[in-house]
Design a protein around this nucleic acid. Structure first.
Length: 458
RNA sequence: GGCUAGGUGGCAGAGUGGUGAUGCAGCGGCCUGCAAAGCCGUCUAUACCGGUUCGAUUCCGGUCCUAGCCUCCA
């Protein structure tokens, strides 16, 4: 089966055929670093991480670019509020983003460009747009003239008249058309500013992605991804800029957008105060469980986040690690095993991770009835290979069950042995008391048939 | 108001023109000193109304409902 991708531009699933079969180019809009990453930032990172892993399996080279937006008025606001430099804000939150993504098992992209390193190229692209007649200067601003590009609106499926009718914001008087958007704007004293032919200022919101794509991947890329909210206006505007500056060449051959996360059936938003930070969720559950929860719903569907789905994900991982635990005696070379077809087929069907996960469960079930050593080796190899595609199940089961936080193993072992002797003497009252004591410590006891017991962190 | 996506069992969540995945929970059993874990078995669903069809959950039309975007947002 070949990879099928739902292309936002056509609103259909299409077969994915890269322009160059040996080199696939993927660009995903990364975070604006003005606060700690929330679960909504984590979803695209995890989803496109799975796509990246899948593409790497299918193609020789995958150039994955995910940017860091470190120039933005929200960053300016955060810096002003704390009375620190914007660099301090963006450095702090970039670091937090990297740490959180690592905790979620997200691989680093091949290139991670920052807007501040591309100011020259941004100015250059704006100049080219002005020269081509697609942009104009007005009162220190440079604006993209939307009516100059007839294809505007095709990505998000809207027409100009609708946009004007739906406009709810006050339109700046110097705009030639209500829909024109800013490429460059002047900075007031105290605001970060870069020199430009139009005076000291800073770039508008969309131009940085067009510029970084051109610089690192070229004029036309294979896949452009991001959150659904970026379809309009961000990606529509990016597309307009890039297409015009490149003489009508396509910016991206496929567009992919992930759905939003709701919290307890409500939209996650700062005003509702229900924004879930990744760092807080990591207190609740291991990053792998958070990742698994994100992959339990198809990426284009909305995802209702709750404590329940997180607990459920952790429990499901418990079961899968339990199965791996039973295969601990099986020695294999993991690189020698291929992911089962049914599993790959699911992922190749527009990244159907829920269906892929159900194949994982099917594999796990087979382990229980597999008797021969060959069958057990194959199943373990397939389970680990499939897990690797999703970025899960790669830990030692013992580490998964015991956790990494500070626990007093010696004390636990002492209590477990004390309880074993009590059981041997048929002093069940004492044995049960010790079990309760361990339960209170967050340790669950599992008796084995031979009288010994294993334990795990709950 | 405009545009878009969607409504599947107690919950989560796939697929499909012809006996409705998978997981959790529930129930029954095995195992256990009792548990836990595990194993075996098992109940429950395609919003509503029409149409096309031998046959629709799947295709078409309508109704109702939900979510997202149209404004900063992953």
């Amino acid at each position: 089966m070949t990879l099928q991708i739902f292309n936002t531009a056509s609103r259909k699933k299409e077969e994915f055929v890269p322009a160059d079969p040996r080199r696939v180019t993927l660009y995903v809009c990364g975070p604006t670093v003005y606060s700690f990453p929330h679960i909504g930032n984590a979803r695209p990172a995890v989803v496109f991480d799975v796509l990246y892993r899948l593409l790497m399996q299918k193609f020789e080279q995958v150039v994955y670019v995910r940017n860091i937006t470190d120039v933005d008025d929200k960053i300016n606001a955060a810096a002003a509020k704390e009375k620190v430099s914007i660099g301090e804000i963006s450095t702090r939150y970039t670091r937090a983003y990297h740490q959180n993504m690592t905790d979620l098992g997200v691989l680093a992209p091949v290139i991670e460009p920052r807007v501040t390193d591309h100011m020259e190229q941004i100015i250059d692209m704006i100049e080219r747009l002005v020269a081509a007649g697609n942009a104009y200067e007005a009162e220190g601003h440079v604006l993209f003239h939307v009516p100059s590009y007839s294809g505007y609106g095709a990505l998000s499926g809207r027409n100009l008249r609708e946009l004007i009718a739906g406009a709810r914001v006050d339109v700046a008087p110097f705009k030639r058309d209500d829909t024109d958007f800013v490429l460059w704007k002047p900075s007031d004293a105290g605001q970060p500013a870069w020199d430009s032919p139009w005076g000291a200022g800073r770039p508008g919101w969309h131009i940085e992605c067009s510029t970084m794509i051109e610089q690192h991947l070229g004029e036309t890329i294979d896949i452009h991804g991001g959150g659904q909210d970026l379809v309009f206006p961000h990606h529509e505007n990016e597309r307009a800029q890039s297409t015009c500056v490149h003489g009508g060449k396509l910016l991206s051959r496929y567009w992919m957008h992930n759905g939003f996360i709701n919290v307890d059936r409500e939209k996650m938003s700062k005003s509702l105060g229900n924004v879930l930070l990744v760092q807080d969720l990591l207190e609740q559950a291991p990053g792998e469980a958070i990742r698994f929860a994100l992959l339990g719903t198809h990426y284009r569907s909305p995802l209702d986040w709750s404590d329940e789905i997180l607990n459920r994900s952790r429990r499901n991982l418990d079961r899968l690690y339990e199965v791996l635990n039973h295969l601990q005696d099986v020695e294999i070379d993991t690189s020698a095993f291929e992911v089962p077809d049914m599993f790959t087929d699911a992922l190749e069907d527009d990244l159907n991770t829920p269906a892929a996960i159900s194949e994982l469960h099917r594999l796990a079930k087979q382990v229980k009835t597999a008797s021969g050593q060959n069958a057990r080796e194959t199943l373990k190899g397939q389970l680990l290979a499939a897990g690797r595609m999703l970025g899960i199940l790669q830990q030692d089961p013992a580490v998964w069950f015991r956790g990494t936080s500070e626990i007093d193993e010696a004390e636990i072992l002492r209590l477990v042995e004390l309880r074993s002797s009590a059981k041997k003497e048929r002093n069940f009252k004492q044995a049960d008391e010790i079990r309760e004591q361990l339960t209170a410590m967050g340790i669950q006891i599992q008796d084995r048939p031979d009288g010994t017991s294993s334990w795990r962190k709950v």
